[in-house]
Amino acid sequence: MSDSTHHSQFAENSQSCAPAVSVSNLHMSYGSFEVLKGIDAEAAEGSVTSIIGASGSGKSTFLRCMNLLEQPKEGRLEIAGETVEFAYSDKGRPVPVCKQVTRNLRTRVSMVFQQFNLWPHFTVLGNVTEVPIHIQGVSRKEAIERAEYYLEKVGMSDKRDQYPAYLSGGQQQRVAIARALATEPDVMLFDEPTSALDPELVGEVLNVIRSLAEDGRTMLLVTHEMRFAREVSNQILFLHQGQIEESGTPEDVFENPSSERCQQFLSSIIH
């Protein structure tokens, strides 16, 4: 199969590099409800990691911990050159992560959301230049050049002066990907980027993500598109009730999963 030669080549690439993301013993709770129960994972630089699992298993929460939108209560996160240790103070409150670290981390890890979340009062170009100009301190001229480059990449150059309300879901998501790319991140996070799209629009977004995978971008991707995950990923993590039940290459996980829950999940998805 041509697919499998495709990703084995990626796997070779990534093995030679240091991990871009490394998570150990990550615990996260909403109140007293523990959502993540000690996650250990690594992602090599330039690799694509897909996170799969049933609804409520903690996939989004895991991803949101990667840019500190949620604060874990325990564990260690190394990402984009920053190392963060999470801990609780004596009073049982989480010790807040230093503002500067949070900021650095967030400007180098960018996220693409299920609902696109473009800012409706900015044009396409405004959305893509917002973070470089107003957060990263890039000059307007350079930011526009960057924006034009990445809009071209996602095939949205011709809509640069349009407002998001005038775009289809697929187009909005492609702009959202350009917005994330324009920050020139070390790691990109995708939380079900195609789940809010009409079926006929899914393909155009997947094609963009596939091309990013081919460029060797480090990506963590939560998705229900199993065929796609299998095709582009170097690594699959199967999450079940806040723990990694199964992990490995797409072949390992999809063809001979050792965990029974993973087998059940895969068969329920496929049928």
């Binding site: 840019n67 939108l69 949070t102 400007t107 609902q115 979340n117 973070v131 107003h134």
Partner: peptide
């Protein structure tokens, strides 16, 4: 979620207020 997106990109809360 529009505000949270700005936060996810590292925008400070005052900037989120004025710009978004």
């Amino acid at each position: 979620r529009e505000l949270e997106t700005a936060k996810a990109f590292g925008m400070s809360s005052w900037k989120i207020l004025w710009r978004i």
